[in-house]
């Protein structure tokens, strides 16, 4: 028996919004420790890694490890049926071929359940090596989303250059060129507004704007985003989900021919 309950359906809606542009389907691996999903997009350029810890749920029970392959479009249709302040419970029997989403209104007067067929998905798990990144940038997630949106107008790819002075995002194309420089903040009122840079070595890498923009769909999950970069390895874009876990996106850099 698997059962996981969240007090607010909003968080699950936001998580789905953060992954459904990149993935059509995904396998949710459930165990005692929580729920994990790791999946690459069809072109194998980016990877989504979602971790939701069991202690972040209002209730969590997983008697036996269970992998649930879900069509994310279908899951989105079901989650649309939940109000934001509904409690959501995800339930499945061991070896089941369906999963049930149950939504309860705050006053418990409305209870709805939606059963969805599970899918058998070919899982290709990737071993991601532990990496000491040369540069780790933390910045407001909305600022990062804004920069990705703005620079995508100029080119399909974006250069990210990180030095100890700051981080620079650049794009150039037929229209002209764009550069956005962010310096490390010296003092801020709110921690969420801070820009911080930990640098061992300066790094310059080029990435496809389309994927970066897809990652920024996770912005509603977290006030801050963390970019981890080293020369010639995939970028990691991480959004922490308060008290519950995180969503990490990996993106292969553009490489010289």
């Amino acid at each position: 028996m698997f059962e996981a309950r969240l007090i607010s359906a909003t968080i699950l809606k936001k998580i789905l919004d953060a992954i459904k542009d990149l993935l059509n389907e995904g396998t949710f691996d459930c165990s005692d420790s929580g729920i994990q999903l790791q999946a690459m997009d069809n072109s194998h350029v980016s990877l989504v890694s979602l971790t939701l810890r069991s202690d972040g749920f209002d209730k969590f029970r997983c008697d036996r490890n269970i992998s649930m392959g879900m069509n994310l479009g279908s899951m989105a249709k079901i989650l649309k049926c939940a109000n934001n302040d509904d409690t959501v419970t995800i339930k499945a029997q061991d070896n089941a071929d369906t999963v049930t989403f149950m939504f309860e209104s705050p006053n418990h007067e409305k209870v709805s359940d939606y059963e969805m067929k599970l899918m058998n998905l070919d899982q290709e798990h990737l071993g991601i090596p532990e990496t000491d990144y040369s540069c780790v940038v933390r910045m407001p997630s909305m600022e990062f989303a804004r920069i990705c949106r703005d620079l995508a107008q100029f080119s399909e790819s974006m250069l990210i250059c990180c030095t100890k002075e700051g981080v620079k995002f650049s794009a150039s194309g037929d229209v002209g060129s764009a550069n956005v420089k962010l310096a490390q903040t010296s003092s801020v009122d709110k921690e969420e507004e801070a820009v911080s840079i930990e640098m061992q070595e300066p790094v310059t890498l080029t990435f496809a704007c389309r994927y970066l923009n897809a990652f920024t769909k996770a912005s509603p999950l977290s006030g801050q985003v963390q970019l981890s970069m080293s020369a010639d390895v995939p970028l990691v874009v991480e959004y922490r989900i308060q008290d519950l876990g995180h969503i990490r996106y990996y993106l292969a850099p553009k490489i010289e021919d």
Binding site: H44, S46, H125, S157, P234, A252, K254, I255, D257
Partner: peptide, 14 residues
């Protein structure tokens, strides 16, 4: 010029 890398060439398939 540059081409788009793929994750398979950086991470090992388990």
């Amino acid at each position: 010029s540059q081409t788009q890398g793929r994750l398979d060439s950086f991470f090992k398939v388990l």
